[in-house]
Design a binder for these strands. Sequence first.
DNA 1: CTAGTGTACTACACAACACAGTACACTATA
DNA 2: TATAGTGTACTGTGTTGTGTAGTACACTAG
Lengths: 123, 123
Amino acid sequence: MFQIDKQSRVPIYEQLVESIERNILCGLMIGEDKILSVRELSGVLSINPNTIQKAYTSLETRGITYSVSGVGRFVSNNAVDILKSETYEQELLFKNTVSSLKLMGVTKDKLEKIISEIYKGEN
Amino acid sequence: MFQIDKQSRVPIYEQLVESIERNILCGLMIGEDKILSVRELSGVLSINPNTIQKAYTSLETRGITYSVSGVGRFVSNNAVDILKSETYEQELLFKNTVSSLKLMGVTKDKLEKIISEIYKGEN
DNA sequence: CTAGTGTACTACACAACACAGTACACTATA
DNA sequence: TATAGTGTACTGTGTTGTGTAGTACACTAG
């Protein structure tokens, strides 16, 4: 459900955010779904509640989730739309990676084969 | 010559390493070229000599450069070959990025267009 | 009333990073 | 030989980001 690598250089709270985003994008979590509470998830992942809280705050600020005091936290109905509108950074990373690979001598064909493999059965 | 962003989350020494690698890969620096000394580059970039040293050590450990005590530091003749053999990590990053973009609803066509733009005139 | 929510706050510890300063061995050159 | 410029190796110090620990309070459902 949540892939967290405590040894990674990217902070735990950021990994958690990305993990939840992925779950929403591939339909594992949909609108109005209740999210594990700060204390629950803290117990499941053996991570400090403050760290979970930090991740949740990031999602909330962007409108991906909303919270009801005393009740819990839920996935917004338009969460998927919001996430899809945030593609800019990923596209930039894609361009930079392609440029590096080109410099390293990787052929255009090879990159296109990798893409086809990932998109196989679609498009 | 060297693109360093002191505000970035990626460490300065790592940015420096990548910058030099790029210069070597695109032929700006070739075998037996003398590299700016620790103190020189420190002055040019306004970065602590220790930080430069740390970057240089990384290049040296991988055989991309070599140093002659009391003389200076030079690009290895097989630097390009070494760098090209280190594509694995970049390819992994490429795959992850493509997967994310796919989840975000970016089409295969769009990615291929970006690639063609970067590779235009070649392959 | 109680248990479980979200939220906010202070305090502390740790690691990575960068900087400051010093020191020493080496080499080329005047 | 003397000097300046190399690489290299230390020991500190300070800052920042991250994560943890603990506490507290308002809210809501049962």
